[in-house]
Design a protein around this nucleic acid. Structure first.
Lengths: 189, 189
DNA sequence: CCGTTTTCTTGATTTTTGTCAAGTAAACTG
DNA sequence: CAGTTTACTTGACAAAAATCAAGAAAACGG
């Protein structure tokens, strides 16, 4: 089993046959640190799965970069509405480190339903999990202080927090790097 | 065409035949002000479509109510992960006014894919739109001040803002009623 | 391994937002 | 329509977080 098959297997209840069919549609690819998987304004024509490395998703807002999320090993990444509706993407997606990914083209992605009968149902359940994550994230913004939110994310995403520059973490948590630095200091004393 | 068919038609590109098949699975129902569509801790076994009235979605957090959203005419409402995975819901859903809804039971909802071949694809596109809304909302929390966020939501949801008690609006925007009151005063001067 | 660049920490200060409390206005109810 | 409840506004103050600036630490590149 390839890494991709391994991951698909852990997410979805596919049999070996389907695993092979699906993973055959993905092509292995590497990005160097600083390379873009997607640029804002362009249409998203691919979906990727991250095998190793970090991918930062951010937008430019009046000259400032707002980091939306940082994806790591095991994430599927695309701008879903751009991929489906072929609208220009709002997001830049840039490799924070050298990156190993598996990429599926839009055309192939759209044929998954024909190739694997249970794909639509599987995809729905996957999207529902993403929904839950976004809902939890919104909840953290409306019900927690900066400090509580920091800990909430830290618990759920330890591997990211130790590898990513503070400025990016701060932005995705809706606070400043200084605030995180002060929260961290509190822990030590 | 019933109101529900009308709405389904405006969201989804169904032909008349499919519209009738789908809307036949919904039952018309009314809730009185204060009634619950769903209580936290219970499994969500229905999905509803709001024809008129306001439905507040909120959670209890150490004795305080956190309002997640207020849904109005034209919204489909359910706790998606509870509906699909049969986990206990985090959310209370309570009628803020008398409410006219169309309700589909979980069992019928799960059969939609058999009844309407294009349902899975349609549902995916619908979920993608919801995704976009949640993404925009997260973006508002990480990139805007309370005042900017207020205006951002006001522009997109005028009908809600004029009907709903300030305390609920404030909670769903992640600020206090006093803050909204002061933002509104600024507009007048 | 040394200089450069980037990132992180810290303090002082300002701004934003929250909290508390009181008073006013509006909505509901019998 | 009078009394009650609920919602809204306002001010004074407190707390949280942002900003600015400087220095320390770490990472990077030849």
């Amino acid at each position: 089993m390839t890494d991709l098959e391994q991951y698909l297997h852990s997410y979805f209840t596919f049999d070996q046959d389907d695993l092979v069919k699906v993973s055959a549609l993905f092509k292995k690819k590497t990005l160097n640190k600083g390379d873009y998987f997607l640029k804002a304004g362009k249409k998203c024509n691919q979906l990727c799965f991250i095998q190793s490395g970090l991918l930062r998703i951010y937008a430019d807002v009046d000259g400032k970069e707002v980091t939306q999320w940082i994806s790591t090993k095991g994430y599927f990444v695309a701008d879903l509405s751009s991929l489906l509706f072929q609208t220009p993407s709002l997001w830049n997606m840039q490799a924070l480190t050298n990156l190993d990914i598996f990429v599926i083209e839009r055309a192939e992605y759209n044929r998954l339903g024909e190739i694997i009968p249970k794909w639509p149902e599987t995809e729905k359940l996957f999207l529902a999990h993403c929904f839950k994550m976004m809902e939890d994230r919104i909840f953290s913004f409306i019900s927690m202080t900066a400090e509580e939110r920091y800990h909430f994310f830290f618990e759920k995403n330890r591997e990211i927090f130790n590898q990513v520059p503070l400025q990016y973490l701060a932005s995705m948590l809706g606070m400043t790097p200084e605030t995180i630095s002060r929260i961290r200091r509190k822990q030590l004393i």
